[in-house]
Design a protein around this nucleic acid. Structure first.
Lengths: 232, 232
DNA sequence: CGCCGCATTGAAATTAGTCAATACTCGTGG
DNA sequence: CCACGAGTATTGACTAATTTCAATGCGGCG
C-alpha cells in the first residue's frame, strides 16, 4: 500500500520560488519523514477530493496537477479560497470537519497522509510540528494578502496580482500556464467570467501580456504588470 | 516587571462564545502556562502596537479594549484584516517580520509575550504547541470565511454577517457595542463609509436592528438578520 | 454653548455585473 | 485530414450596485 518511490518536495525540486514558500526548502528533511505514511492517489478533472463538512481524516500534498478549495453560498455563488499546485499541502490544521470542498482542477496526483499518524509523529519529532506550524502561517499570510486583494483592489489590479503570483508559483519565468478556467479565476478573485476575460483582453491590448490560447499567457512587461498589481 | 495578577483567558471568563473559539475553553490550562512570561501593557486610542515589517519579537493577547490589524496599498487604500477583542491573540505564527500593522481601536490593555520564550516553552510543553496550532487554525478558518464575504457577498450581506459575528464575539446577546468607527468597518468589509452607513440605516428602517447612537446597536430580528447574512 | 469629528443622506458618476450573441478550441468521428 | 459539436472564452450593449462628491446633521467634550 505504501509507495516505495520517494515523493519530491518543493515544487518538483526545480526553480525555487523563494518569495512564496521558503519553508519548503528549509524543512524538506522534516517533511520527508512524512513519506512513510504517504499513499499516492489520483483524481480526474473535476472530481471531488473531499467535501466541506466531511470528517477530516487526511492531509494531502499535491504532486502534479492542480486542486481548488471552494465554498458555496446557499444561492450558488461560489468562492475559491485557493489553488493548490505541486508541492502544496491541503487541509493543514483542519481538525474535525473539513472547512471547504476540494476539487481537482486538472487531472491530479496527490499523496494522502492520515492525520492521526502525522499528529502522532509530531509527538516524536517536534521539528515536524514546527514545520507544519510554519506552513500554516504561510497559508494565513497568503489569506491575508488575498483579503486585501478582494476587499480593496480593482479588477485590473486583481488580475495583475493573480498573474504575477501564478507566474511566481509556477516558477517558469514569464510564462504562465493557467490550469484553471475563467470561471475558476473569477470565483477566486471575486469577479465574473466576463470581467476576467475583458480585463485580460485589456492587458493584451496594452501589450503587457500575450495570450497564445486562453490558458497560455506570457508576461511581456513584468514591470508594468507589477505597477498595475499595486502592492509592493 | 512580571505581573503577579493572573490574567484570565476566554474573554473574561464570562459568557462563553462556543461557536467562535472553542479552543480557549478547552486549553485554558495550557495557555495559563504562558502567564509567567506575560507583561501587561496598555495603549491609548489610535496608538500603534507594531508596524508591518517590524521585527516580530512578541505575541500579544488582548485583555480589554480592541485592536485592529491593517495593511495599506501605496495610494492609501486600507484594508483591516481583523479586529481583536478581549481574549484574542495577536500575531500568532508571525516569525521574522510582522505581516501587518496593529493599532489600538480604543484604549486597550494587552499582555505581551516574548516570542522566543514562548517558543522555548513549547519545547517543554508540546500541548501548548498544539494549542497555539489550533488557535492559528481558527484564524485561518475565519480568514477563509472573510474571503467568501469579501469576494461574493453584497453590502447588505456583509453588514448582516458582521453584526452577527460581532454580537457573537461580544457574547452580550442581542446587543452590539461597536468599538470601531464606520471607516474601520468599511475597511474591514471592503466597502465605503457611506455604504456602511446607508446599509445600517436600511436595516434600521426594516426594523431588523435599532441604533441608539452610532456605536450602540440592538439586534431586533436575529432570524431575519441571519437570513440576510446568507451563509448557514 | 459651541466646536470638531464622525455619521448620515442625497445626487451624480463609475465600476463591475447581467444578458445575449458570436468566436474560438480541442477532441471525436466521418 | 477535415468537419462537427460541446464546452469555453470573448465581445457588446445595457443595467445595477457601489463609489464618489457634496451637504447637512448629530454628539461628545472642552
Amino acid at each position: 500500500m505504501h509507495p516505495t518511490l520517494s515523493i519530491d518536495f518543493g515544487r518538483g525540486g526545480v526553480s525555487p520560488s523563494p518569495t512564496t514558500q521558503p519553508v519548503h526548502r528549509d524543512l524538506k528533511a522534516e517533511l520527508a519523514a512524512l513519506d512513510q505514511f504517504g499513499m499516492v492517489m489520483s483524481l480526474k478533472r473535476e472530481e471531488t477530493l473531499f467535501l466541506e463538512g466531511d470528517q477530516a481524516k487526511y492531509y494531502f500534498k499535491v504532486v502534479s496537477g492542480a486542486v481548488r478549495s471552494c465554498r458555496l453560498l446557499p444561492d450558488g455563488r461560489r468562492h475559491i479560497g485557493d489553488f493548490y499546485l505541486p508541492g502544496d499541502f491541503i487541509a493543514l490544521g483542519q481538525s474535525g470537519a473539513y472547512l471547504f470542498t476540494a476539487e481537482a482542477v486538472t487531472e491530479v496526483t496527490l499523496v494522502r497522509y492520515v492525520r492521526n499518524r502525522v499528529d502522532r509523529l509530531i509527538g516524536e519529532r517536534p521539528q515536524l510540528g514546527t514545520c507544519l506550524f510554519a506552513m500554516l502561517s504561510e497559508d494565513l499570510s497568503s489569506a491575508q494578502k488575498q483579503m486585501l486583494l478582494l476587499g480593496r483592489k480593482t479588477a485590473l489590479e486583481k488580475l495583475a496580482s493573480f498573474l504575477l503570483t501564478m507566474a511566481d508559483r509556477e516558477g517558469a519565468g514569464d510564462h504562465v500556464g493557467l490550469p484553471m478556467t475563467r470561471a475558476d479565476i473569477a470565483d477566486y478573485l471575486g469577479l465574473t467570467i466576463e470581467t476576467v476575460s475583458r480585463t485580460l483582453s485589456q492587458l493584451k491590448t496594452a501589450r503587457v501580456i500575450a495570450l497564445r490560447g486562453a490558458a497560455d499567457i506570457h508576461i511581456l512587461d513584468r514591470e508594468h504588470l507589477q505597477e498595475l498589481a499595486g502592492d509592493l
